[in-house]
């Protein structure tokens, strides 16, 4: 039996520093401070780090990752897992390319090509999300293995549809989205605001958290567990589809291997942002900070001329470090 007594606050000058440190470590914006501190430290040594063009490059890298991470955040708070986000990104990219491409698209040249392509990409996201949601709720398959299977299935499908080729010749109306950064920014900000509002201001958000904490108790308390779970996987698929739109527009090709190596960035950013894989605990803003931090790392190391493999190694280390810090901070919170 643990005593349900709160320890008296530590006082005195030494306690002041300690409690300050503790407050920083347990602060909700810790990751933001860390990201800013990182940027401030590296700025003097990194040529071209503080410049308008680099700011744009940073943003262009971060936006699609952020969009996908937001959907995953919802699923993780629900206590689920979705490994198939990168499969959605590549499959939607291929489907979009197949419809819109001027060279080989089914609607090549049609004025409706762009809206139809975008709609089809969103539909792919919702569809894969619905498959995940169905397998997880109706068939009660653990989310990890269900989405692992759909990851393999749908990324395999994307490769098969194109036989590994990239699809070029996307219509200018679509590619514009990649060239005008403010458009992508507006879309991502809108999507983030939507997720934030849904999570903190609606019944749905309360239900997602309750299911993440304890699905059995949630069901007995009248939460429509299956409906909410299904909807969350569909939402995650849609977010990934929006991410795919941003990726595809920026790279101006439909690519069956699009984002294949970004799973680490997506999952890692959410974890760095303090969302728990046990469910219940997590914040949209935390994920935004997490993506910011990872993007800063990626961007600065690239500018410093590090090779791809060194950057990958360091990113792995950053995620481990973040997880370590989170463990430490939970210990502090538990002791308080």
């Amino acid at each position: 039996m643990t005593p349900n007594v709160v320890a008296p606050p530590v006082s005195g000058p030494a306690g002041g520093i300690l409690s300050g440190l503790r407050r920083l470590l347990t602060s909700e914006s810790l990751v933001l401070w860390l990201a800013l501190a990182y940027a401030a430290t590296l700025a003097p040594f990194t040529p071209g780090f503080v410049s308008a063009s680099n700011g744009q490059a940073l943003l262009a890298y971060a936006l699609p990752i952020l969009t996908a991470s937001l959907g995953l955040t919802l699923v993780l708070i629900l206590g689920g897992m979705d490994l198939s986000v990168t499969a959605v990104i590549s499959l939607a990219s291929v489907v979009g390319g197949r419809i819109m491409s001027a060279e080989e698209g089914w609607m090549a040249g049609s004025p409706l090509a762009v809206p139809a392509g975008v709609a089809a990409m969103l539909l792919v996201g919702a569809g894969v999300g619905a498959v995940n949601g169905w397998v997880v709720t109706a068939c009660r398959v653990p989310a990890f293995i269900a989405t692992l299977a759909t990851l393999m299935l749908f990324s395999g499908l994307a490769l098969w549809m194109t036989q590994s080729r990239k699809i070029g010749g996307l219509p200018p109306g679509f590619v514009l989205l990649g060239q005008r950064l403010w458009m992508a920014t507006a879309i991502t900000a809108g999507v983030a605001a939507l997720a934030q509002a849904a999570l903190s201001r609606t019944l749905y958000g309360q239900w997602v958290r309750a299911i993440g904490y304890n699905p059995r108790a949630a069901r007995i308390s009248g939460v429509p567990v299956h409906r909410v779970t299904f909807a969350t996987y569909v939402a995650c698929g849609l977010f990934a589809a929006v991410s795919s739109i941003l990726f595809t527009a920026a790279l101006e090709t439909g690519n069956p291997e699009m984002a294949r190596d970004n799973l680490l960035d997506v999952v890692g950013a959410v974890v760095i942002g303090g969302t728990s894989l046990y469910g219940g605990r997590g914040r949209i803003l935390g994920t935004v900070f997490g993506v910011l931090f990872l993007s800063l790392v990626d961007n600065s190391l690239n500018l410093l001329g590090l090779t791809f493999y060194n950057i990958t190694m360091i990113k792995g280390g950053v995620i481990l470090g973040a997880a370590l810090m989170d463990a430490l901070r939970n210990r502090l919170l538990a002791a308080a």
Partner: peptide
């Protein structure tokens, strides 16, 4: 504990 409460919430 299992059916009544979300213990972490």
């Amino acid at each position: 504990r299992a059916e009544g409460l979300c213990l972490e919430a």
